[in-house]
Amino acid sequence: MMKDTASSSLEDLCIHINEKILDIKRCILLRDIGQDECRKSVVHKIQNKVILVHDLLNKMEIEVKQQEKLRDLLKDIQKAAEKEQKEAQHLLEHIPPYLPKPAQSCITVPAVKDEGQTEAVEPMHAKKSAKKTKIIKEAALITTEEFESVPTYMKGRLTYDQINAVVQQINKAVVDKYKILHQPLKFMSSSVRNLYHRFMEEETRDTKGEFFIVEADIKEFTQLKLDKRFHNILSILRHCQRVREVRTSGLIRYVIC
């Protein structure tokens, strides 16, 4: 067994040596061909082509490196885009329930004619004005910047969402109140007519042309509790200039700013 292994190794060594001798013979043959005058032009052309191929390989290597850099850059861009997409999807799925409005919003309701008006005698311009809509002003929601600027002693444990929830309820009370005021009396039920008369009695010179509510309106049109927390939120809304108070004859009117 040992003899066979030694014989195999010797054969391999002989093959290797013979291959090297063959390579040397080829080199000598090529050297001799290069010295042959009739073959020098062919060798020269081959040399030029080798140089061209070498230059082409260099250019290809440079291009490959540039493409690799571009590939790495595109991978970075792809990762950044995927990250932005995930963040955008997260924001889409977790939109805050109360987003600040860009500006004060208003609700329009159809204007109605006074009870004394009749279609037979009113002029053409009166018909046009009757078709115009009246605007109900609402308070804008508190922005996060405004919330951060509110003094800590005013906020206490109140959250941004809790404050804006009250703003929305106040706006609901304002809209419901002024929708009634814009209705014709002849179409009102007795209970709604009583509300209408109360609204008119609460008007003063200071509130003329303004939109306001009182605590009775909040009780009538919302589920808000008029407790300490509610009045703390009202203080914040006054601080942020969403409402202001008009006090007359012991009645507090919350005017929309």
Rank of each mutant, 00 (worst) to 15 (best):
T5G: 07
S8C: 07
I17M: 14
N18F: 04
R31E: 12
D32N: 10
G34C: 11
S41W: 01
V42L: 12
K45A: 14
K49N: 14
I51M: 09
I51K: 11
V53Y: 13
L56C: 12
L57P: 01
K59R: 11
M60Y: 06
M60W: 06
I62H: 10
Q67L: 13
L70D: 10
L73K: 15
A80G: 08
H94N: 15
P97K: 03
A103G: 10
V109L: 00
P110L: 00
A111W: 11
A111L: 07
K113G: 00
E115N: 11
Q117G: 03
T118K: 05
T118Q: 04
A120E: 04
A120S: 03
V121H: 07
E122D: 08
K127A: 11
K128E: 08
A130N: 05
K132L: 13
T133L: 04
I135F: 12
I142E: 01
T143Q: 00
T143P: 01
S149M: 05
T152M: 13
D161L: 08
N164S: 10
A165C: 09
I170S: 03
I170H: 01
L181K: 09
Q183C: 11
M188A: 14
S190N: 14
S191F: 12
F199W: 12
E202G: 08
R205P: 09
T222C: 04
K225C: 11
H231Y: 15
Q241A: 09
R242M: 02
S249W: 00
